[in-house]
Design a protein around this nucleic acid. Structure first.
Lengths: 213, 213
DNA sequence: CCTACCGATCGGTAGG
DNA sequence: CCTACCGATCGGTAGG
């Protein structure tokens, strides 16, 4: 499973340069991950090739495979890389856990309208992931389980209902579904939809509905 | 653009058998369309091969290409075929145009829970369609424009608001987005979501919200 | 990291 | 509709 490292050490690897191969290798991996994120986002996973990824970082596809072992492992790394970035951003600004999470989601919808590449990558891979034996399937399944839990407790918090209330978990699924579905519509036709307003309306309507009765 | 027909006429093509080649060809095309729908649904378009489609109807991939010209044209035919089926079903049961459409969508969500293959095919192709230069892109763009119009007028009807009200068109986008997004969550984990209840809640909450103020 | 290669598979065409 | 073929491309491996 591990990736052997048998290429020659850099000629200038004495004490003069503090950069060990592992440091450079880490940078190179990050470059590949960025390129792979872009290519899978533009073309999808099935249609994105290692060759195109490799060209964008100035190496051959064999070089990419050296770093990541297989196309599938590269995809997994891309997904985790994206996840890390999301988490970092969440924690950087604030890590809202209660009702404030709902406002944060409205903000996210707005911000996403200026990150087309990222939205497209997410939507394309998510869509592909429901196909048979797709390597991203487990990743997204787990991710949505976690997302639903977070949003469920946020809605419980905002409405004073129990997180076990079926209406609450339904509402959580709906909020997430709305964000995903709006992204698809927006990607197909950006002028057709105001993602921020639509998410805001959804959250408002659901919370109001769950507050009564 | 047209597909030439130069294969030999059936040996038994006299007056005894009323089946002209065009009739048989039409049946064969329908078989291919069904197989292609299944394969693209299971594997996606990029990952689904003409060879697998051909095998399922007992011919070679060249035979499939004879009938449809190219893989891309086959995809377009599949999408139109699916669309025709949807329309036929809509008109068969009832063609609800006003507020009744909203109830019909709740029913559709319920019915979809027993048509996993169809839902998966739709979700996978829709997700792929947002990638660069994807052949299904125009199809889905047009489809969503039409869907939004229908649902917008249904919501206007149900709430007494104008179809030009931005809240109404936002709500329409949300209803459609919800259905799509829920399907994805359900495909990833069928036990995680009650599609019917979630759509019902969404419609109810949005209509209630738009009825006030 | 590259070169050089592999087998497999792809969509499409020619030609009947 | 098939056989037979094409060039292109794919992911992956060997070996340094």
């Amino acid at each position: 499973m591990s990736i052997p490292e048998y290429w020659p050490a850099p000629a200038s690897s004495g004490a003069a340069r503090a950069q060990r191969p592992s440091r450079r290798s880490g940078q190179r991996r990050a470059e590949i991950l960025r390129a792979a994120t872009a290519v899978f986002g533009e073309r999808g996973y099935a249609n994105g090739s290692l060759n195109e990824i490799a060209e964008r970082v100035g190496m051959t596809h064999a070089g990419v495979l050296h770093h990541f072992g297989s196309k599938e492992q590269l995809l997994i790394a891309v997904l985790e890389y994206r996840d890390d970035a999301d988490v970092a951003e969440l924690e950087g600004h604030h890590a809202p856990r209660g009702a404030a999470l709902l406002d944060h989601l409205v903000e996210t919808a707005q911000n996403n309208a200026e990150r087309r590449g990222i939205v497209q990558g997410y939507t394309a891979l998510l869509g592909e992931s429901v196909t048979e034996e797709h390597p991203a399937r487990q990743f997204f399944t787990d991710r949505y389980t976690g997302l639903r839990d977070m949003v469920t407790s946020a809605i419980a918090d905002a409405t004073g209902r129990s997180a076990d209330d079926p209406l609450v978990s339904s509402a959580a699924s709906v909020v997430i579904a709305t964000m995903d579905g709006l992204q698809t519509q927006w990607l197909l036709d950006p002028s057709s939809v105001d993602m921020r307003e639509a998410v805001r309306l959804t959250v408002e309507a659901l919370v109001a509905r769950l507050r009564q009765a």
